[in-house]
Computed example of a mutant assay.
Amino acid sequence: MSRPVLEVRGLRAAYGRRQVLRDVTFNVAAGDVLTLLGRNGAGKSTTLLAIAGFVPNTQGEILLNGQPLCGPPHARMRQALGLVVKGRSLSGSLSVADNLRLAGVSRKELLELFPEMERRMTVAAGQLSGGEQQMLAVGRALLRRPQLVLLDELTFGLSPSMSRRVVDAVLAQAARDGIAVVAVEQHIHIAERIATHAAVIGEGVVRLHLHRDELLRRAAEIEAIYLGLPVDV
């Protein structure tokens, strides 16, 4: 069996003295999508930020293709990492075209993925609608052909039709290029559509590892973790 693209082992991370992650462990293979499920404050987004280098890990390992993923965020990006997190994904004052140039992504590639962006190339990213900003951010992250992409609440604030549009693009591109994806999500029904498998985080600890087919069947257990109740694994 080949080594996973991403291995996270016993990850602990803190904001100052406040311990947020206590024991986060999971693997993601090429072309797979892992969703991190959990209530607000469980540690999902902190996990992404720790992998990307924005939050220091105090213990544990983060391995990309078997090698430690370390250094500041810009160094990790050079190690084939893509990131879509609110406030960290786009240069709002730059046009769509300039954002693409900054990422080394061609206009043609973005328009193949999201043709509706053709008329928005000269518009500043900060002036785009929420859905357009997400298409640009996702396109920039995926079309660099990284080995790993981290997505924080991919569909938050999007209409159902825009959510489907963005999710379909992510799934198609990840499968086509063999990109490993870690996607933070709060809603089980969205995770069931996106994921190949899921890790459910409660109080900074991964409490359940589930295949996509188990998500709806074990929804009561997932919801118990959201509520901080004990669950027999």
Rank of each mutant, 00 (worst) to 15 (best):
V5K: 09
E7T: 11
V8H: 08
R9W: 10
A13Y: 03
Y15A: 09
Y15L: 12
R17Y: 07
Q19C: 02
V20F: 02
R22A: 08
V24N: 13
A29S: 11
N40I: 01
G43N: 06
S45W: 01
T47Q: 10
L48E: 03
A50V: 05
A52N: 05
G53Y: 02
G53H: 12
F54N: 00
N57I: 04
T58A: 11
T58E: 04
T58K: 13
Q59E: 15
Q59C: 08
G60I: 03
I62V: 14
L63Y: 07
G66H: 10
L69N: 04
C70K: 13
P72V: 13
P72A: 04
P73N: 13
P73Y: 09
A75R: 11
A75S: 07
R76P: 07
R78S: 12
A80V: 05
L83T: 00
V84Q: 00
G87L: 05
R88N: 09
S89H: 02
S91I: 12
V96T: 14
L100D: 03
L100C: 08
S106G: 15
S106C: 14
R107C: 03
E109H: 11
E109T: 12
L110M: 14
E112Y: 05
E112I: 08
P115L: 11
P115M: 05
E116S: 10
M117S: 08
R120T: 06
L128E: 08
G130L: 06
Q134C: 06
Q134N: 09
Q134H: 13
Q134R: 14
M135P: 03
L136D: 10
A137W: 06
G139P: 06
A141N: 11
V149P: 04
V149S: 01
V149K: 00
L150K: 07
L154C: 04
T155E: 12
T155L: 11
G157D: 09
P160G: 06
M162F: 15
V166K: 02
V167H: 00
A169M: 01
A172L: 13
A172Y: 06
A174Y: 03
A175K: 15
G178A: 09
I179Y: 08
A191Y: 04
A191Q: 01
E192C: 05
E192S: 09
E192Y: 01
R193M: 03
R193K: 07
I194C: 06
A198C: 13
V200C: 10
G204I: 07
R207E: 01
H209V: 07
H211W: 02
R212Q: 09
D213K: 09
L216G: 05
A220W: 00
A220T: 13
E223G: 05
Y226Q: 01
L227Y: 07
G228F: 04
V231Y: 05
V231L: 02
D232N: 14
V233Q: 14
V233C: 10
